[in-house]
Every structure is written in structure tokens, then in C-alpha cells.
Nucleic acid binder design. Sequence first.
DNA 1: CACAATGCGGAAAGCGTTTTCCAAGGCGAA
DNA 2: TTCGCCTTGGAAAACGCTTTCCGCATTGTG
Lengths: 335, 335
Amino acid sequence: MVTIADVARHAGVAPSTVSYVLTGKRSISPQTRTKVRESIRLLGYHPHAGARALATSRTNVVALVLPLRPGVHLPVVMRFVTAAVTTARRHDMDVLLVTADQGAQGLRRVAGSAQVDGFLVMDVELDDDRVPLLRQMAQPSVLIGRPAAVKGLTCVDLDFESAGARCVDHLADLGHRYIGFLGAPSVVYQRNTGYAQRMMTGFGAAAMRRGIASTVLPAEDDYESVLASVRSLLRTQPAMTALVVHNEAALGWVAASLRALGRRVPDDVAVVAICPDELAEQMQLTSVQLPAEELGRQAMELLVARLNGRPTAPLTLLPPKLSGRASTGPRLRRA
Amino acid sequence: MVTIADVARHAGVAPSTVSYVLTGKRSISPQTRTKVRESIRLLGYHPHAGARALATSRTNVVALVLPLRPGVHLPVVMRFVTAAVTTARRHDMDVLLVTADQGAQGLRRVAGSAQVDGFLVMDVELDDDRVPLLRQMAQPSVLIGRPAAVKGLTCVDLDFESAGARCVDHLADLGHRYIGFLGAPSVVYQRNTGYAQRMMTGFGAAAMRRGIASTVLPAEDDYESVLASVRSLLRTQPAMTALVVHNEAALGWVAASLRALGRRVPDDVAVVAICPDELAEQMQLTSVQLPAEELGRQAMELLVARLNGRPTAPLTLLPPKLSGRASTGPRLRRA
DNA sequence: CACAATGCGGAAAGCGTTTTCCAAGGCGAA
DNA sequence: TTCGCCTTGGAAAACGCTTTCCGCATTGTG
């Protein structure tokens, strides 16, 4: 391995000088600078990350804590991941993967051994046992998702309540008066996952506000279950003319299920999805975008801000955006 | 931060003793050991990763190089990732995420600064520009996928040729004589991605061997394209009674496309997929398993082996496994 | 009984950086 | 000229760990 001393010797300067050339923390005369740069290039020198971490107590690595539990939609997770990594790289940081199954234990380990400068935690629950730990850790953290109390934290999330309301408003404006809601798998509601509940709350509240009858039901991620759920919704509310789907995995089966039950999209039943835009585009679904990339990017930017000592708001909510597509069709004639 | 010196002082021993208790590289009397352990617990001591890396020139971190390009199916990637991370943790290693878009450049950076002990590289192409670099790097690497020449490397892959053949054999045994092949998106073939080509090659060769007419076509990942491809296949080969699909993203549209063209699965057209078992189970498709978890696990195990100085075979091919399900139905009557 | 071998503990020398601290030269101002 | 400041360079002290080397007992062996 070629060290800073080798470079210094080769360039005929002191190690400290090389260091200053590298970090730019002090002015160096143009001559020595180019001389040093040349030696670095020639010898193919790279600073040793461990040594640097030891000296600066900065690793330039952030931990990304991934959920790997039933009910999370893997493609969406990947979107977060890629956005987070890309953004991190833009700030010259690397990303260490920590899976949530390692739990608070894993966080403690990584934080304690000073492997990372900060944490990006995905999929936080309303009452997450990692939150108290994150609060007291030396390293700053940013959460994607929204625990019950955000005081002293930095959280980023889609404004799911508004998203739910947005769906209702859109459908109501089109003249729909009976709307169903197909939610995430029931396990997601069983553990205290905030976003799913908030989405549903926003949906329900908006429906009440507009005097619209609404029925909600969870859905698993296979065809049979989706079919059963849709059938159940239709039985409960035979006049249902619109369906809001908050479940990426079920999305593929919704149209088929409706068709199997004799309803066509959008003529008999309008469908609005909450999912990444790309997916909606592919299936030609009117949708409220789930801006995974944007969330991942923002979260990482906030983390970088905190690492650089800049203060951040405890809660950043991204406003929902609705894109109209074929699945909601034109205004209902018989309002 | 609490250091090894603090622990030593608290326990009334020398730092070296604490180190030996931690690493177990020397025998320590039970008394001192428990005394030291107690101090460690009490002070909440964690060894500083950077310092350790500096002293041992081992980071206990491996890089996972992820593909993020068009045509790769994100859920499958996530399976690899989770299996790799889980396996790594079992060996007390962590995983640093490197996205393939950083290219050879990124590898050089991470390797040069000694951030990791080894590399796990996913989605290698037949003629991958990272391979020469990997060959000459100080850190060992394991590739998931199979470049043209594997000499001096450690590669893990599914035996895609056999997989292709396996599909043909299964269908031929059921009496099918005209078989179509719906492949990956065309971009995947345009870049030199070995697995897709090998799958197709295995399919074609087996068909030839058994005197079966075969037609192959790529498929994009939206309904319209799949429908077009299937229509095209049926037009080319009107007698087609079976379809092999090697495209996770298209899978969801295949049955719908066939139905739209007046064919029912499996009565008119039998379908065999190559995809993760879970997906096949969900859709009730006869399939050759794409053992993403198994590949990820094996790859990481091999990497760990190499890190510990154990020799490894240059190429490990996992045998394909076929699971019969509803989509191929019983034997054809009119053979 | 002498002497090597073994078990266990400590002192100290790295590992490769960064970052003080000191020094020397050049320069402008008094 | 002299004083002090600014710029640029080097020496050396951390940073927190591992590991070699050394030393002291205690044991086993001829």
C-alpha cells in the first residue's frame, strides 16, 4: 500500500504538506501543489479510509437502515435506496447497508464502533423502539416515515393524509358518491405503521367531509385475496363506482378482479392508485405519486445538512401530486 | 468516546489485555477475563472500527456492487441484497453499497482507500470492463453472473443453459411440439448480458435436440409490448401450444395477453416461467426457480471463504429446479 | 535440582492520517 | 531599519487499536 509518506518522499515535501494539498485546509504554493498532485497521480495514492476516520473521527459513510419485513414492497424500497445512494455519492459519502432485522441492536453496534457518521432510517413505525435510541445517539439521523412524536428528530414523509384526501376530492369532483378503499396487507396495519393509517384516515375524513359513503378493506398481495377483497367491497357497497388502492403489490390484480366481477375500468368503477408514478404510467392508472426517489433524495440531503451542522426542521412533508390517467375516465354522467 | 485505555484503567489491566480478551487471540485467566468483560459492559465500550481497520488492515466490510440499469428487475435485486447482507452479518461483516453506475471508477475508489475487504459484484456482463480491474485488485471478489473467461475469478450463477433446456424438456415431455420463448427486454440482449443469452441458447439447443419448433422474441415490461410480442409469436407459429417466459416484469401480462388473443392457460397454451419461486407460486405458474437468495448466500459464503484464505472454484453453477404448477396443466392429448 | 516450556500480564511500537505547533522567509508599515 | 504579520513548509503529537516483544511465575521434565 502506498502511504502519504511515500507521496511526501516522492515529491520531496513533508507528509503534512501532502495532507494539506489533499484537504485544501491551508494555502499551498502552486508549485508544491502541482508537484504533490503529480506524485499522487504517479504513485496511485488513495488515503486510507480507516486512518482518516481515526484522525478526523469522520468516516464519510452513512448507514441506510432498510426494512425487510412482510408487506413492504421491494421495488419501492429499491427506489429509495438508489436515490439515497446517488445523493450520498454526490456529497462524497458512501452508504452502509443495515437491515432492520438487526433492530436497535444493529444500530447500537454500527453507531458504537463509529462506522458511520449518520443514519437514514426507513419505514419507521408510529411507536418505533429505535426512536429513543436514535434520539440519544451521537450520530445524527433522518427518518423516512413519521413516528408519533417528532420532537428532536428529523423526519421526511409524504403527506399521506392529504394524499388520501386528494384521492377522494378527485373522485368526488368526477361525481362519484360511493368509494371503496383497498389498503395494504393487514399485517401493515397490525404493526403500527403510520403511513398506511394516515392514508386511510385522510381518505375517511375527506369522504366524511364531502358526504361520501366509503368502505375500507385491507388486501393481501395475491390474486385470490384481492379478488375476495374487491368482492367483499362490492357486496358491502353495491353502488360503489370508484376504488382507491393503496397497495402496490395488489395493483396488478385489481383490474382483473373487477373484470372477473363484471365491472370494467373505468366505465363501471374508476380506480385511483397510490404508487410510484412509473408504475401508474405503465398500467395507465390515475394515481397519487409515491415520490420514493424524491423522499430518498430529500432525506439524504437533510442528513448531510445535519452532518454539516446545519439545523433542520423536525418534519418535512411532501405534498401529494395527483396525475389523471385512463383509469378514472371522464365525469360520471349519472351523478 | 470510551476507548480501550478507559476500559483497561477501569479493570486495572493493560490495554493489550483488553484487546486479547476481545479478540481471543491469547489465553487470559478467567478472573481477568470476567473483570474486563464487566468493565466493557459497564462502560459500554465498542472498539473503534477505524482504529481497528488501521491496526489490522481489515475492515470487516464487503462491498456489494448493485446493478441499477434498465431491464434489471428490482425485486429480484432486493432478494440478492437481503440474502447477501444476512449472510455477511452471520460472519460479522457489514455491507457497503456501491451502485454499478459508479463503474470501475467506484470500485477503484473503494478498493484504493481500503474501505472494504472484498467485493460482491452483481450482474456481470460477458465482456465486463470491471473484470480486468477486479482481477488485479488487492481485495478478493466474487461475481454473481458469468463473464466470458472465469479464470482467476470466483463466479456464481444459475446454470441458465440447463434451465433453458429444462423448460423445453418439461414441455416436450408433456407433448408440446411448438414452443415460443418470451425473453428479457431487448436492451438486456443488446448489452452483452450473459445470463439472458445463455438461457436462450439452452432453450434453442434443447429444442433442436428434441426436434421441436421454437420461436424466440424479447418483451418489454408493459402490457402493450407483451401483447404485441405474444401476438407476433402466435402469428409466426400459429400451432404454438407452449410459452417459456424469461422476464419477471412481463410475467404479469402474459396470461392477460394470451387471453386477449383468445388462448387460455393452460388449455390452449402452457406457460413456463423462469423467476423467483415465490412469484411463480403467487401466479400459479410452472417455473424454473431463479434462486436469488441461494445465489446471494452462496456468493457471500464464497467471498468469506476467500477472505479467510480458503481457495474457491472459479465457477459455481447452481442446477435449475423446475416446479410444476397449474400453468402447464396435464399432458397434451393431441400430440 | 536445574532448566526449558508454558501461561499470563504489561510496555511500547506500529498502522496512516490530520492537526497542532514551531520556524523561516517575504513583505508592508512605522 | 525594525517590528509584526502573512504565507508556506516541516516536526511531531495525537487518534484508538493490535501485536510484538519482554518478563515474571508456575509448571513439567530429565
